[in-house]
């Protein structure tokens, strides 16, 4: 537990000191939001209807940049090897990294919301449920994404491999997060929000535990 907190502190510090990269990822997400509206056309109704989907697509695309970046620092001077050799459990290393990535992605999601509201004239709905959904959805991106990034960053072609592995896996996250965000923004007459939220929670719990279990095998091989 303490080990995980120390690892989290290290990764959070690393992200704070390279915050220029976060800005770059944010600008990438904002650009994606802008481009999606060009693909749909200037019709305000259609844009508003698809706003939640575009927000999550932009977040998903940007997440591959952020996740890949999070392990790039560890490859310099074989830092990852040094970390694995420490008398600390790799499980702690994983949760430190995954939680730091989660925080970064959630922050990114929250920062993109005003863009979505302005560009698509979308009603943001309640702030608290929206932030809650962003937290749940980005956890679903971060837990498997951190594990996959640990693999793909070590091979050539990592920029291609990470989305190739991650995107099919997070289809349920995308579906649930988009549906739930739409419901928060436009109202929930059929009370479906609860089941989508439950799906997200289940996905997060399953992959948080499974990936923590398997991470040791990945970095130790």
């Amino acid at each position: 537990m303490t080990q995980a907190l120390v690892a989290l502190r290290k990764d959070a510090l690393l992200q704070w000191r390279t915050r220029g990269r976060f800005v770059a990822v944010f600008v990438f997400g904002a650009t994606a939001l802008l481009l999606f509206s060009f693909a749909i056309g200037p019709s305000a109704g259609a844009l508003r209807q698809h706003a939640a989907g575009f927000l999550w697509l932009a977040l998903m695309l940007a997440s591959t940049l952020a996740l890949g970046d999070s392990f790039h620092g560890e490859m310099e001077n074989r830092a990852l090897e040094g970390l694995v050799l420490l008398p600390a459990s790799p499980v702690a290393l994983y949760y430190g990294k995954a939680l730091a990535n989660w925080a970064q992605l959630a922050l990114l999601g929250v920062a993109l919301v005003p863009f979505m509201v302005v560009l698509y004239d979308a009603p943001p709905g309640g702030a608290l449920p929206l932030i809650g959904l962003i937290l749940l959805g980005t956890a679903g991106l971060s837990f498997p994404g951190t594990l996959y990034a640990a693999m793909t960053v070590q091979v050539r072609g990592s920029q291609t491999l990470l989305p190739l592995l991650l995107f099919p896996l997070v289809v349920p996250v995308l579906l649930a997060a988009v549906s739930a965000t739409s419901l928060v923004m436009t109202g929930d007459p059929m009370d479906q929000l609860r089941s989508w939220t439950l799906l997200l929670v289940c996905f997060d719990l399953i992959y948080a535990s499974l990936c923590g279990l398997l991470f040791g095998r990945v970095v130790e091989s």
Binding site: P144, L147, V171, P172, I206, L210, L214
Partner: peptide, 17 residues
């Protein structure tokens, strides 16, 4: 590792769709 992670996803994808 990747095969285990992907296989576990199958029922979740099924139910979400």
């Amino acid at each position: 590792v990747a095969a285990i992670i992907a296989y576990v996803d199958v029922p979740i994808v099924y139910f979400s769709v």
